[in-house]
């Protein structure tokens, strides 16, 4: 009986969210070029890393202490960074624009859709996009010979987990923003994360005090997780990274859904 109600609740929720996704698909169809061009960007980056920086740097220390080529080291970090950027931009700039300027959600909420439907739909759409880009990125990595292990398949769900973690926190942040100037702060926060999360070189390059600080960076956990998967250095320590990201997703999600409810239905 209870299970029946639960299933009914989930399916109605799901169908509500799917209609929000349908709207985003319609918009994407109108701007297909923008969507498709997103697949080209990682190719440029991976190429520059491979023929450019890779040849300047040579080999670096991998997660297991052994040497790996620089390109195989940096490529998974770029995948993680693009998962972070995609989720954060979508949830901050995207949501802020739709909520404050487009008044899009006001129109949606005048229909049987609920704020939960809207939030789930937007997160779902952001994740579908993230999935598409992550798959494309992995394909390029495989073609360029930058993937060392079949565990790499799990890098795609790992990127999705990152999307949930950063998307939820981004959405929570977006509900506190009042103007476009506040969005500059988002950029200001993302850049150091991008540069100092063991993205472009191993942790041992940093002084010891900075190494500790780096471990607080949420991107660091995403990078470390995805890098270990594509390089095939698997160990129980990876679960720690997973737990960190999952905790971000849960806390961000709770704050975001409370704040959204208050703001959308005053």
């Amino acid at each position: 009986m209870l299970t029946g109600q639960l299933i009914a609740a989930v399916t109605t929720r799901g169908s509500g969210a799917s209609r929000v996704i349908e709207r985003d698909l319609l918009v994407t169809r109108n701007n297909l070029m923008v969507f498709v061009s997103g697949f080209v960007e990682p190719v440029f980056y991976l190429f520059a890393i491979d023929v450019g920086l890779g040849r300047l740097v040579g080999d670096v220390t991998g997660p297991d202490g052994g040497p790996v080529s620089y390109a195989a080291f940096a490529a998974p970090a770029l995948l993680a960074a693009s998962a972070m950027n995609g989720a954060v931009y979508e949830s901050t700039f995207g949501i802020f624009f739709k909520m404050r300027w487009g008044k899009l959600y006001d129109a949606m909420l005048a229909t049987p859709l609920t704020p939960t439907d809207v939030a789930l739909g937007e997160i779902g759409w952001s994740q579908l996009r993230g999935l598409a880009y992550a798959c494309a990125f992995m394909t390029v990595m495989v073609v360029m010979g930058l993937v060392a292990s079949p565990w790499a398949v799990l890098a795609i769900p790992a990127a999705i987990l990152m999307g949930f973690a950063f998307g939820a926190v981004g959405m929570a942040v977006a509900t506190f923003m009042r103007s476009w100037v506040d969005l500059d702060m988002v950029n200001l926060a993302l850049l150091p994360l991008f540069l100092f999360s063991a993205t472009f070189y191993p942790l041992d390059v940093y002084p010891r005090s900075l190494q500790m600080l780096t471990q607080l960076s949420p991107l660091y956990h995403g990078v470390a997780l995805i890098r270990s998967l594509t390089l095939g250095t698997i160990g129980p320590g990876l679960l720690l990274h997973v737990a960190f990201l999952a905790a971000m997703a849960v806390v961000g999600g709770i704050v975001a859904s409370r704040r959204l409810h208050e703001q959308l239905l005053p």
Partner: peptide, 15 residues
């Protein structure tokens, strides 16, 4: 509160 990124028809459709 029209959806500025969609056409007239698509606005009606998605609603």
């Amino acid at each position: 509160t029209v959806d500025e990124e969609l056409s007239v028809t698509d606005n009606l459709y998605i609603y």
